[in-house]
């Protein structure tokens, strides 16, 4: 194997990892603020993949552009979900929250199975097989566009939390819940907003992802696990950690698929997860508890 092949795979991993990172960012934001672990995260991402797939087949909308309407729709779904389903569970034990969302995950994946069947679906973009040459390295055009879109969405989210009043209010909620309530922040509203933003990330990432891989309902649980792995490796609740974790897992899986065997790539990321849990439970970016 040549060096250029490695570089190519490395770059591929980075580009895919950015999309993974966006998906994991949603999970991280929800956990960081609402303190609820969205066990249905991957299921929502796959739902978004199907939404983008339908938009593409019916209206020929490019999946990467479809990320915008899909994210908007998922924001609304997330808002409603938090407001009417998850909110009553905020004070309940963690197990109960987890089981509720496991139930939701089962419902989503089986609804998709009933509607679309178990076969994988494919979007055939006009530029699917186009690529650029950077020296000896081949870069897939579609992967580059997908990664760019993921970066734009992530940057927008960072800017929202950093520079807007609402974003600051949400961060205040995450840091000190009682304090936030005392100064008169509407915590329920901010939670709904955050859950909406988190699902919007999953929605955007899912729509973008459909340009890169085939979609089947069976992908959902593995995406949930992927998002968890990324977030834990990066550091639960840290936005930068989620993106870094995404990059790392993207690269690790890409390298594993040429070094080991493609079907065993997720084993390598689980090994990474176990390693992080065993030796640095706070994640790569997180502070020790």
């Amino acid at each position: 194997m040549t060096l250029s092949l490695y570089l190519e795979v490395l770059l591929q991993g980075i580009l895919t990892g950015l999309v993974y990172g966006l998906m994991a960012l949603g999970l991280s934001v929800i956990f960081g603020v609402v303190r609820v672990v969205n066990f249905a995260h991957g299921e929502f991402a796959v739902l978004a993949m199907y939404a983008a797939f339908v938009l593409f087949t019916a209206l020929h909308v490019d999946p990467i552009l479809a990320a915008i309407p899909v994210a908007a729709l998922f924001f609304v779904i997330g808002w409603l979900l938090q407001r009417f389903v998850v909110q009553p569970f905020i004070v309940r034990p963690q197990h109960d929250q987890f089981i509720l969302l496991v139930g939701l995950a089962i419902v989503l994946v089986n609804a998709l199975l009933m509607i679309f069947g178990p076969d994988s679906r494919h979007t055939n973009l006009s530029y699917s097989y186009d690529s650029w040459f950077i020296g000896p390295i081949i870069v897939d055009k579609v992967r580059a566009y997908a990664a760019a879109a993921a970066v734009v969405v992530s940057a927008a989210l960072f800017a929202f939390f950093r520079f807007t009043l609402l974003g600051t209010a949400i961060r205040a909620c995450a840091d000190n819940l009682t304090g936030a309530a005392v100064v008169g922040l509407d915590v329920k509203k901010l939670y709904a907003l955050t859950f909406g933003l988190g699902l919007a990330c999953a929605g955007a990432a899912g729509a973008i992802m459909v340009a890169l891989t085939d979609v089947t309902p069976m992908l959902a649980p593995s995406f949930t696990l992927l998002a968890f792995t990324i977030v834990i490796v990066g550091g639960l609740g840290s936005m930068a950690g989620a993106l870094l974790g995404g990059l790392l897992i993207g690269v690790v899986e890409a390298l594993a698929s040429i070094l080991v065997e493609p079907s065993m790539k997720s084993m390598v990321s689980f090994a990474l997860l176990v390693g992080v849990l065993a030796f640095r439970p706070q994640g790569l970016v997180g502070k020790p508890a």
């Binding site: 089962i106 089986n110 009933m114």
Partner: peptide, 15 residues
Amino acid sequence: GTKALVFGLFLMAII
């Protein structure tokens, strides 16, 4: 699929 879907709803309703 239907069976699992109903079980999922059942689980959510119980919890």
